[in-house]
Amino acid sequence: MLSYAVYSEAGGVGKTTLSANLAVAHARAGLDVLVVPLDPQDGDLSYLFDVDQDRADTETDTLVHHLVGRATGEFSDIVQTVEHGVDIVPEHNRLEDLGEALRKEQEARSDFGESFPMWTQLQRVLREANIHNHYDVLIVDPPASSGPHLYNALDATRNLVLPLEPSGKGQASVSGLDDLVSNLEDQLEINIGVLAAVPNRFKGTRDQDSIIEEIETQGFDVPAILRDRTSLLEGCWRKRCSAFTYVREHRDRRRDYELDTLEKFDRLARHLEKQGDIEAPTPPQPGSLEREETEVRA
């Protein structure tokens, strides 16, 4: 199974949008995909996929219940299916208190001489649910800040996809990529692979070219560079869908530059699949929507 967390320590670099479109790119190629978003903020992946209606419901079973061993049902019961057959565990407001909930459970277990490692609980939940037998791809979308959400995401996936902004503002995070990964490995005492670095909002300036060269010099793969597509991606959030669905259902005509962006998502997904040693059974022509439209009409 291919598993990775889409992570950036800088906000506003398109992390959640990239997670959504990679999930759809994998799924439309015939792979079974599970997405586990862990960001407690509103305007998250659950919002983008339009499955956040119960995030404030105090009676519903949530991922946090499962992480602390207080689930009221099966893990599969909290999973919802969205566009292209992507499965997702919707975010809930309880994620805001995940750190406190894990610490309380750790203290309670300690009183009885039991071990409860706080950073491995997502891995445990997924293992007990046999997700390796049910899915080909696991994508976890943690928040930018360090803490229990990020650490559980990394322990469960052991791989990173790093979106970044090739700009003066993002220069520090680019220069610190090596240190970022090394520090996370030291904190969690695990090895973390970087499957790809993905520059976003690229406008083709000389300064941006030099930043991308720096990334490659550090040894990170840059299999796709996403140009600035503000209108397209803002449309995704407005209509609460992936870029694939937005172009197919909410554009009155095809725009070559938007199809180029869809192609980049598809090619990036194929690159990641190759890194994970899996092969998509029915990959479409990169960026093509023709087969999807035929299936919709049928």
Rank of each mutant, 00 (worst) to 15 (best):
V6M: 02
Y7L: 15
S8H: 06
E9D: 09
G11M: 15
G12K: 06
G12N: 08
G14T: 07
A20N: 08
R28P: 14
V33N: 07
Q41T: 08
Q41K: 09
G43C: 08
F49L: 13
V51S: 06
A56L: 11
D61E: 14
H65S: 10
R70V: 00
T72Q: 12
G73D: 13
S76Y: 02
I78Q: 07
V79I: 12
V79D: 05
T81F: 05
D87I: 08
N93T: 05
R94Y: 12
E96H: 15
D97N: 11
E107P: 00
G113H: 11
T120A: 10
R127T: 14
I131S: 00
I131K: 02
I131E: 01
H132A: 13
N133T: 07
Y135T: 04
D136S: 10
V137E: 02
I139H: 06
S145T: 12
N152P: 04
A156Y: 08
L160P: 04
L162S: 05
L162W: 03
L164E: 00
G170Q: 03
G170D: 01
A172K: 12
V174T: 09
S175C: 01
D179Q: 11
L188K: 10
E189Y: 07
A196P: 02
A197G: 10
E213S: 15
E216W: 00
T217G: 02
G219V: 09
F220G: 09
S231A: 14
C236D: 01
R238M: 11
K239G: 00
C241R: 09
S242N: 05
T245N: 09
T245M: 01
Y246W: 09
R251N: 04
Y257W: 13
T261M: 14
D266I: 11
R270K: 00
E273G: 07
Q275H: 11
A280I: 01
P286H: 08
L289P: 07
E292I: 10
V296W: 11
R297G: 02
